[in-house]
């Protein structure tokens, strides 16, 4: 009994925090699936919107999918995100393996450099990159956008993969080398399969960060937008309800991903570049 009473403050904290985290998502749900009369129209005419689903409609979603731009934006977002995820593994796996083999002191200097690159403001970097891409014909392409977004994603991917590789038993790794497997063969046939959960998580994290990315997208691909930019444009043009439907489309996959990946998203990884 005594123990149960002592948990009350804990549960109050839990409830308050969950209300704060879930309320905005609930609002998004209301906006997307309730008739406008109870949401935006109420707000814009100075009334209070209802806090419960006062009605149900698929009209907003249908209206949003009736806009031809959405398919182009969806395809562009998907192409970019998969390319970013793929590149992250292509460059990240060898780099993380290399880092795991170096002396901790040197590895830490290299990690800090990667981390520092991650800190540089996207806004500052985007303007010169945009000028360069203009010359190379890469502006507005998903390739150019993916190359720029890779920058934000790569350091985190490397730290995540490094964490996954370091948790493998060292004997297996050296065993494979003694057996005479070449280095690249060792990495791809022994280490990657053993660390597959971590590798998958690294891919999904980079995929997700690209899917959400705004700054590079608005500087490098304003005319052929990705989904986030499309939402921005629709809101600024006053199409509030379509934006709600777009937002649902952007949000559902990432929420599923976060639920799936929650146990991989560890503080040690985000801190990776500066730890030790």
């Amino acid at each position: 009994m005594n123990r149960a009473w002592r948990l009350i403050p804990l549960y109050i904290g839990v409830v308050i925090i969950l209300l704060y985290t879930l309320f905005p998502l609930y609002i998004l749900f209301l906006l997307a699936f309730t008739p406008a009369a109870y949401t935006t129209i109420a707000i814009h005419s100075g009334n209070y919107p209802t806090l419960y689903p006062a009605g149900f409609t698929l009209y907003n979603l249908q209206a949003a999918f009736g806009i031809p731009e959405i398919m182009t934006a969806l395809i562009k977002s998907l192409e970019t995100a998969f390319l970013v995820g793929g590149l992250a593994l292509l460059i990240g796996i060898p780099a993380a393996y290399g880092l795991s083999r170096l002396k901790p002191k040197i590895a830490s200097i290299i990690s800090t450099t990667l981390f520092f690159a991650n800190m540089l403001p996207s806004v500052t970097i985007a303007i010169p990159i945009s000028a360069t891409f203009l010359r190379l014909g890469l502006n507005e392409t998903f390739l150019g956008l993916a190359l720029a977004q890779e920058l934000i994603v790569l350091p985190l991917t490397v730290f995540m993969l490094l964490g996954a590789f370091q948790s493998l038993p060292r004997e297996i790794v050296s065993q494979a080398r003694v057996d005479g497997a070449g280095l690249m063969t060792t990495i791809y046939t022994v280490i990657v399969p053993l660390a597959k959960a971590g590798v998958a998580a690294a891919f999904l994290l980079s995929w997700m960060m690209s899917w959400d990315e705004f700054t590079f997208a608005v500087f490098l691909s304003p005319a052929q937008p990705t989904l986030p930019i499309l939402i921005y444009e629709y809101v600024t043009r006053g199409y509030i309800l379509e934006a709600a439907a777009f937002s649902m489309i952007v949000t559902i996959p990432v929420v599923v991903l976060v639920i799936f990946m929650a146990k991989f998203l560890k503080g040690e990884i985000l801190a990776g570049g500066l730890n030790g």
């Binding site: 985290t21 905005p24 705004f214 986030p228 921005y232 937002s247 952007v250 990432v254 929420v255």
Partner: peptide, 14 residues
């Protein structure tokens, strides 16, 4: 953890 995955633009909009 869920808000971590929600796009900045979606959060801004909501």
């Amino acid at each position: 953890m869920i808000p971590f995955g929600v796009a900045t633009i979606v959060a801004s909009y909501v």
